[in-house]
Simulated scan of single mutants.
Amino acid sequence: MFGDPRNPVGLSSSPDYALVGLLRIPAAQSSPWVSLTRRVLFAIALLFTAATVVYVGRHGYSDNTGDELSFLDAMYYATVSLSTTGYGDIAPVTPSARLVNIIVITPLRVLFLIVLVGTTLGVLTERSRQAFKIQRWRHTVRNHTVVVGYGTKGRTAIDAMVGDGIQVSDIVVVDTDPVALEAAAAAGLVTVHGSATKSDVLRLTGVQRAAAVVVATNRDDTAVLVTLTARELNKTAKISVAIREAENTHLVRQSGADSVVVSSETAGRLLGIATTTPTVVEMMEDLLTPEQGFAVAEREVEASEVGGSPRHLSDIVLGVVRNGALIRVGEPEVDALDTGDKLLYIRRAGK
């Protein structure tokens, strides 16, 4: 079902142009109506410029009716000239008028055609541009974070990561909901349309070279399958998974998750605490909001701190990460800090 990661087949081995629509690279975009309006206004401005030039030099033009050119005649000549129709009923006859045609009208004609043809070419080449961006992105993406699911949990996780300094360009979103993917793309995120339970879809995200994977699906069974697939493709990435029921925690961990968050129980505990000590919940929300107040952070132990106790530091230390395992402050194992330890501490947001 998951495929052999040593022999990529399917989507991951498809040519880049075949991935347009599935893998979407964000770019600065403006409304197509705004772009079209600008092009039309620019074309009209070119017409009026050409008509004004012809009207100013109207004595050098000949009308087959023999009358002197009016501004309407000048507009008519500019229209048929810039569109290269050229009926010939109005034509420059004097040397000065012909010189103006060469120096002014001809460049305006070329520019006018560029504006008109450019709109068509822009539509026709958009797919090629997307394919080129996909090719470039797939060859350069490294150490990024893959977020599976762009619902409430996924969006909140991304907000927290961005608040902690992770660049939006280093986050890839996978979802099956086109509406959610549109919202993610509007936020500047790279998106992949498909089910993350399939190894080919995860390969499109570059999960093999990802530093972290966040699984925020709506179903626990889906979370288990996604975790298993992600761990199969990447043995070293940090995989964090959100599930609804605590009884599924062991399944997710056996599938390869490094961190498991039980959303229903966590919310239930906070609700219970809020009935008696709402200020505790307020402080917890403060710690989980990196943009303001306090936040929980991690840092390396400094050389001057090695051998000392974490309880004697100026920072409020909550725990020590040693050899990948969290040891809470107060345990005898961390009475003396070692080189390579990491500290979980409380810092002021913005520092």
Rank of each mutant, 00 (worst) to 15 (best):
V317M: 04
R58H: 12
N323W: 00
D67T: 13
L271T: 13
T289N: 15
D335M: 05
A184I: 05
N7T: 11
A51R: 12
P107V: 05
V174K: 03
P92W: 03
V123Q: 04
F112V: 01
R6M: 09
V213M: 07
G122K: 06
T276F: 11
V317Y: 00
V306S: 10
P8F: 07
V317K: 01
T191I: 05
G149T: 11
M1K: 00
L343I: 02
T205Q: 05
S96L: 15
D170A: 14
R269G: 03
V214M: 11
A183T: 10
V93H: 05
E282K: 15
A223T: 12
P290V: 03
H59P: 02
L116P: 01
S259E: 09
E298Y: 00
K153F: 07
Q208K: 08
F294G: 00
V296P: 00
V56E: 08
T65L: 12
G206H: 06
Q135G: 13
L228N: 11
R347Y: 00
Q254N: 13
N143P: 01
L46Y: 09
P92V: 08
S62R: 15
A216W: 01
T152D: 13
L202T: 01
N248T: 03
A336F: 02
T125K: 07
H193W: 05
R155M: 12
P95H: 08
R269Q: 12
S255M: 05
F2E: 04
P15S: 14
L189V: 01
G293T: 08
V334Q: 06
T125N: 08
